[in-house]
Structure formats: C-alpha cells, structure tokens
Design a protein around this nucleic acid. Structure first.
Lengths: 341, 341
DNA sequence: TTGTATGCGTTATCAC
DNA sequence: GTGATAACGCATACAA
C-alpha cells in the first residue's frame, strides 16, 4: 500500500500506483471516453480513486486538452436583481451543458470590465459572456480583448449591447420605452417626469429617448427640468425623486424611471414625502424584476425576459453564432396598479 | 517576424520568439516576481506580448505552480437576494485579494451540492465557500468532500451552518428569532401564525423553534394548525399565506415568515385577498434583504448582515482559521410599519 | 542578467 | 487491453 504526500491532492499517479496499473489506464477509466479497459482493472482503479478521495486536476486536464469546461460571466453588480436574474439563466443553461461558471463584477466601470475580461481570458474559458450595461462610444479596449479571445477560437456572447461585433441578445429598449409611453398616455396620463441613468449608459439613453419619443408622438412635451439623470441604483432613484419633490411635483402625475430598481427607489422617496404612489402620483419602471409585483402598489413596467436572455446568450455562444447575429427578445407592457388611479 | 497558429491563443513561446528572448525571460517579465530582467529585453517582451494580444494561460500556470488564484462559491439560488447579497460580499473581498470567483448553484439539493463541491475541487481553488441553507442531519458526503479538500491544503469556509468541522460564519437564528418574538409580543401582538420552510432545513427550523420559544416565554401559545411548512421561496410564502387565509385568519393578528422573501410572498397573498398588510394583519420576516424596506408597509424583520458575512467568510478562509472557529455575526431587530398598527 | 533543463498532472499517440 | 512516453503551457532551480 502506497502513501501519498500529505497536504497535497492525490494525483492520477497515486491512484494508478494504488491500483497497480499505469497512469494511462487510470486516466482512461476515470475520464476517457473509449471503454477499452479491462473490467477488473477498471474496478481496481475506481476503488483506488474513491479510497484516496481522488478528484481529477481540472487545470492540468485543461492544459493537456487545451480546452476547459467553464464559462466566464461578467456582470456589473451581482446584488442587482437585473443581473442576478440574468446570471441565474446563464447558470441554469451552463449546468445543463456540464459547464462551470466563473463570475466577476465590473462595478459598472468600463476599464474594470476590460481588465476582468483580460484576466478571465487567461483561464481559456469555453465561453465568455459579458452582461454589463454598456457605455456609449467605442468600447475599443473591451472589443479588442474579446476579439483576441474569439480569434483564438473562443466563443463570446454579449447581452444588451447590440452593435458590437459579437453574437448578442438584446431587447429593443427604445421601441419598448416608446410603446410604454404611448400606453401610459393612453391611460390618460399627461404630465410626466423621467428619471434616467447616468450619461453615457446606453441602455438608459435608449429607454429615455424612446420614452420621450413616445410622449412626443402622443403630443406630450416634457419640461427639461423634469428629466433627471442619476445613479443606476435604487438610491439613485430615491435621490432623483427627492429632488423632483423638492422642485415641486404639482405639475407631474407620473414618474417614469428607466429601471424598476430606480422606480422602486422613487416610490420609497414618494412615501418618505407622505405621497402615495399610484394614488397621488403614478410610477412606472422597466425590466419587471421580481420585486415589481411585491411593492404596493404593484409596479407598472415593461417585462424583459432576463432569465431567458441569460439562457439564450449561452445558447448563442455555444452554437457558435455569427459575430453579427443579434437575437431580439420580446418585451411586454405590464400594466399594474402603480399607474391606474 | 514569426507567425502564431491561427485559432489558438498565443503562448509564452510565441511571445518569446517574437521578442527574441527565451521563454524563461519572457515568463519573468510577464509574471515572475524578481525583476531581474534587462530593461530593453523587458520592453521587447512587453511589446511583443501586447502586439500578439498575449494573455497568460492561467490553467497552465496553475498546474505549474500547483495553486490557483480562484475561490469557488456554492450557493443555493443566485436569484434569491439572500444569496446574491452574500455573493456580492464574497466577490468584493475576492476582488480585493486578486482572486477570481467561480460560482455554482446547488438548487437546495444536498446531493447536488456534494457533486458541485467535488467538481469545483478539481479546479484546485484557493478557497471553497459553501453557502447553502444546510440540511439537518449528517452531511457526510459533503463533509467528506470538503475534508478531502482541506486535507490537501485547501481552505474552506461555511456560511450559516455551525457545527460542521470548518471555519464558519453564522448568526444565532434561534436566539434572534426568540428576541423577535419577544419584541413583537412587546408591541402588543398576541395571536400568531408562523410560516416555516420545508422540514429538515436547519435555518428554517432554528428560526421557527426560536420564535415559538420566544412566544412561549411571553406566555403565548400558538395552535399547531397555525404553523405551516412550505417552500423556501416567495411563492412558498404566498401559498402558505393563502392556505392560512382559507382556514380563516380571524384569530391571527401577525404572520411571521422565516425569511423576508417568504414574508413578502405572504404580503402579496394578503393583498390578493383584499387584506391590508400591516393594518388588517401584521407581517414580520427575517434577513432584512433590500426589498424589505421597499414593500409597503415596510417589513419588520431581523437584520442579517449578509454582505458582511460573505466578506467575513472570505477572510476566515484566507486567514487559515481553525476548523472549529465560528464567527457569530450580530443581528438586529428592525421594527418597521408592517407590525405597527 | 539570461538561457537550459526539468517538472507540474493530464491526455493522447504510439507501440506491444 | 495495456503501458511507455511525448506533448500541453508555464515556472523555476540551476548553469552560464
């Protein structure tokens, strides 16, 4: 009976020695596909492996095989339900494909995002999925990094930033926001305030501009002072709504925030000011995160199939889609009590 | 000028050749610690690397060095704010330590959890953190797997399951639930219903029993038919509350659910039955997830410092804590409007 | 300071 | 069927 070094994982060699076979044989029964191994030898190896608590060194496997079974996912903020729901979809699909998911957060910084992709690329993942809310303008550094990856045979997919030279799953933010505006106008709302994200955030801009375009189409103008830019967070929504209230809300009957998270922050601000959301003033959001139907009144919003988008992004990457392919996911207007007087 | 194979990542050898130096030299400037490299050679290598878009193969690095810079995190469900907040803490701390986080979801299955740990172990991560809501009874398989990992020099930490032979960060669920019950009784509530998680879930049981113990200490008994077991999800909370309502809620003035997520589901069920949470019937939860203060009325709960727990778990693992070490995190009663008539 | 040679744990290509 | 053995991409002890 052989001894393995303490403080180190048993290796294939340890198992082989214990079983009295060659490493090649051990490798074959433990991992290989071709079942060309003698029955008793196989049993010996299996027994030795479990006795030693052997777990194949996947990093060594990766260097030997030249490929891994991992997918790298980069999100802006995992505590944000938008991203955690996306991530759940990616994880679900990855698991089904026998892939392990590596995750990193970019904290909404483009530079950080590039650095992360550069690092993740080092792990030679099977797939890289980038799900940040993308910035305006050329993403040269990120694109270069991802292109180096795909050029080397990697599969990449991007969520929510159409226009990049990678397979993409996205929703028509501008169009959906426009439809939302028209629907709200159809409900009888006339005086709007809009809470947008920080400048340069593509998703925010699309939704903002789409919404204003819809209002304009309905013959409604909104005062520039009623369009606020703020952080892409709940506190951002709260702060913006607070500003709005301070400036006087008399001529506003609906506040639209470009994300549910921000809208919910705005609702909190309204309540803090002793206003009743949905009664004194209507509120609408965008995304349909789970919480949207838990707040009271339930939040009118646009459903974005986040979990499905994570799944589709995985499918897209795994299927080796064309760089230019964009899968547009359907959205849906979800009227709830927050906009019905 | 040399050509690298298309469809493959440039290797250190490619860079070295391009720069006209040996791989050893290239390795030293690109990764090594000792800066014993000639100035011009270093520049050459750097230039070649960036020109080729070189990213070191981290898996190969790992097998060469025998160690990685990754931490493996296993959670039950990343879409659940409880876990996504924990994960955010882990990610934050990991990033600060220059570690990459690999994540997998166990879907609340013990067997799945063991399988995942077995797989993750194969990556020889620097750290493994298990954050499932643990089941009652012996977790033999999981423990064995984790012990094989630590025996081989790995650092493990566990969140929320004290009693396992690994460094642990936890909260006193039973004690906090008892205090909560006493506080609610102090608010004047007398007739309680309790929504628990499925049998065998340790966290749920501790909170349930602690709560009932607190009530009992306050001289309050609760009818067994008013203690329901259900799924550990929002829908579970909704379903249980619906059952409660169907059975008649006349003799109940407060519903306690063992997690905020479930409590929020219960609030939704109440509203669905045209009852006003916090007015017709009080509701209390546990965890203080972000949403707790977004619902209306804001949810009375017990604050569990989730993000900090993720951070502490990382610290614990990184510092090579004693197997038996348990860090108890403080909890705090957070009274809000859902329990104040 | 730089290069050579060897090893890391596996897989895969050969022979036997 | 099974066993040597050369890769895989990188790090590093040892020479030069």
């Amino acid at each position: 009976m052989t001894q393995q070094r303490a403080g180190a994982s048993p290796t294939l060699e340890d198992v082989a020695r214990e079983a009295g076979v060659s490493v090649a044989t051990a490798s074959r029964v433990l991992n290989g596909s071709s079942r060309t191994v003698g029955k008793d030898n196989a049993a010996r190896v299996l027994h030795a492996a479990s006795k030693l608590g052997y777990a194949p060194n996947l990093t060594a496997q990766a260097t030997a095989r030249g490929s891994t079974r991992t997918v790298a996912l980069v999100v802006s903020d995992i505590a944000d339900p938008y991203f955690s729901t996306l991530a759940a979809g990616v994880l679900e699909r990855a698991e089904a494909a026998g892939l392990i998911v590596t995750m990193a957060v970019s904290d909404r910084s483009a530079d950080q995002e590039r650095r992360i992709v550069a690092t993740l690329r080092g792990y030679r993942p099977h797939v890289i999925i980038v799900a940040g809310s993308r910035l305006d303008g050329p993403q040269d550094a990120l694109i270069e990094e991802l292109q180096a990856y795909t050029a080397a045979g990697g599969r990449a997919a991007v969520i929510s930033q159409p226009g990049l030279p990678f397979p993409t799953v996205a929703v028509d933010n501008a169009g959906a926001a426009k439809d939302l505006a028209l629907a709200l106008a159809g409900q009888g709302h006339r005086r709007f305030a809009v809470i947008c994200g920080p400048d340069g955030l593509r998703t925010s801009r699309d939704r903002c501009e789409g919404f204003l375009a819809g209002l304009s189409q309905a013959g409604i103008q909104v005062d520039g002072r009623r369009v606020l830019a703020t952080e892409f967070t709940e506190d951002g929504g709260h702060a913006a709504a607070t500003r709005l209230i301070a400036d006087g809300l008399d001529d506003v009957d609906l506040v639209f925030a470009v994300t549910d998270v921000m809208a919910i922050g705005a609702m909190r601000a309204l309540r803090d000011a002793d206003l009743v959301p949905g009664h004194d003033i209507a509120v609408a959001g965008f995304d349909d995160i789970g919480t949207a139907m838990d707040v009271d009144p339930a939040l009118t919003t646009v459903r974005v199939p986040l979990r499905e988008m994570g799944i589709r992004a995985m499918d897209l990457a795994l299927s080796g889609a064309e760089p230019a392919e964009v899968v547009w996911m359907p959205t849906e207007f979800v009227p709830r009590d927050s906009t019905s007087r």
